[in-house]
Structure formats: C-alpha cells, structure tokens
Simulated scan of single mutants.
Amino acid sequence: MPDLREPFGAESTALEVIDGIDLHHRTAVVTGAGSGIGIETARALAAAGAAVTLAVRDVATGDRVAADIRASTGNDAVRAAFVDLADVGSVRSFASSWSGPLHLLVNNAGVMDLPEQRTPEGWEMHFAVNHLGHFALAQGLHPAMRSAGGAKIVSLSSSGHASSGIRFDDLFFDRDPYDPGLAYGQSKTANVLFALEATRRWEDDGIAGSAVMPGGIWTNLQRHWDPAVLIGMKRRYRTKTVQQGAATSVYVATRAELGPGTPAYYEDCHPAKVVAAIQGGVHGVLPHALDPVAADWLWDASERLLAQSR
C-alpha cells in the first residue's frame, strides 16, 4: 500500500522528489542520459549535489546535455562518458576506467520494438542492450558500489514485462519466429529479476536494487512503433511528462528503503501491486517478474553468456 506520509505520486516531478535531499559527496551513473527521462533523472541527482556521469553512446549529445545540466543546477560535477550497451567491450572499458566509490547506478537506457537485430555474439538486441549490457555494467562497477557502503541500483522496467517471462529455452529466438513485443517484454522482465537477484546476492556488500515503471511517456524509445498504433495509444492512455517520468527513478534512488524483502518494482513513486494482468495499460507487476527461481537462473545464465564474450 502507498505510504500516505509521502506526498509523491503520478504527477510528481523528479525535481519535486529530490527537494530536500543532499547528495553532495555522492556519485551517480545514469545510462541513456542523452535523451528523455534519463536527462531529467541526471538533472535531479545533480541538483541535489551528486557528481553525475551520463553514460551515453553519442558523446557529443551527452556533452551538450551535461553542459545544460551544469548550467541549470550550478553543479559542475556532471560529465558524459561513452558506453555502448550492445558492446560488452565498451561496457568493460567504461567500468575499468571508473575511479572511486559509486553510490547510485541508474540503468535507464533501453531499446524497444526493434526489427530483428543481433550482436556479434548472436544475442538478440533487446536482451543484449536492456539486460545483458546493464548486467555487465553492474558487474564491472560492483567493486565501486561495494566500496560506497550502501549503493543502490535502479533498473528501469516497463509494464511491457507482462508480455513475456524469461524464455528459458529460447532466449534469443533461435528456434521461434522473432517477435519484437515478446523480445522487449522478456528484457523488461529481466530488468526486474536482475534487481531482485542483485539485492539478494550483494546484500553483504551493502548493495540493493529495485526496478521501476516510469509510466506512459512518449519519447524517442517508441520510434520503431507503427505511427497509427502510437496515435491510438496516446489517445487511450494518460501520459506523463519526462520530468514526471523520471520521478520514480529518483524516488527509488534517494528515498525508498531497499534490501532483501523490500519491494522490487515501483510505479508512481510507490511500490506496485502484484496483479494477474496489467491494470489500465500501465499499473502493476506480474508474478513472473518476481520469481526468485527465475532470477537465480537468469543471473547464472547471464554470467555464462558474458564469459563467452571475452
């Protein structure tokens, strides 16, 4: 149930959530912070004093966004750095270059409804970018998070997780015909399971995570949608601004109590209800995304896949 003492909800913005929070002497990494809700997540964390790294594929765009955030917040400790989540070598290079503790890792970047694409390893692109890239990043930054003493991981999921659990025997559509909706859904389920399992496995390291559903926000993420479908969705469902969409990420990063046994999926700045079917197109989390057996299996499978990419 929502904590009625907290004034935050669906209409809250990231800057409203961060108000009164002091993140000076804290560090944060936000992936995909060159556009959309990633920008506003990074802006809010910087506004509270955090040193924020925008982990982006397009560094020129990232540099422009970093300059804008520095100007709007007065925080000079905002920079952009290159990482391509589809390229494990790039992820490892980013992580190996990190110096000092890391207090907040916001796995914000993602792709959606792509035509069939694969990495050089043969990994389906949704799973590779949305899950495996972020998994590799968290693994690489684990020592930095451990040294922070109380680090948090925020994993951006979606109500789209409802369309598919983990396809244990066909992760990459090697057997079944490719379906972009199922591929996206599987990757979003993986985001929740990762947060759940990271909290369990890294409890002794003081690291905990949770997944978030930002809400219905129309950004560059939907660029591969059929335009007619997109128009219909905009008419049917209530939408948020990017500032509102970033609020739940910021809430979990700075206000939510995370750890074993705490909620693994938030929406509208509150824990989501476990449901049999998504409500109103956006609300609730399905049991398959909270299955500890699936979380354990996925973690081990992800480690094996990354080991093969060396």
Rank of each mutant, 00 (worst) to 15 (best):
G62Y: 01
E267L: 14
G32N: 05
A148K: 01
F173P: 01
G216D: 01
G215M: 08
T254K: 04
W225K: 00
P7H: 11
G9I: 07
A295N: 12
V30A: 02
S35I: 01
A138H: 03
D174Q: 14
V56Q: 04
L196C: 03
D291P: 13
S155M: 14
G38M: 08
S35P: 01
A60Q: 14
Q244C: 04
W202Y: 15
A48L: 11
V106P: 05
K234P: 00
D58H: 10
A81Q: 14
G245I: 04
L182M: 11
E203Y: 04
D296H: 13
F168V: 13
T219V: 08
K152Q: 14
P101N: 07
Q117Y: 00
V17T: 06
D87C: 13
A10P: 07
H142D: 03
H283W: 14
H142L: 13
A276N: 15
D22M: 05
S302H: 10
K234N: 04
A307Q: 15
L290H: 15
D170Y: 11
P2K: 15
A42I: 04
F168G: 00
G100V: 09
T73E: 11
S163C: 00
P287S: 14
I207F: 01
S99I: 10
S187V: 08
G149N: 11
D19T: 10
F94P: 01
I231Q: 14
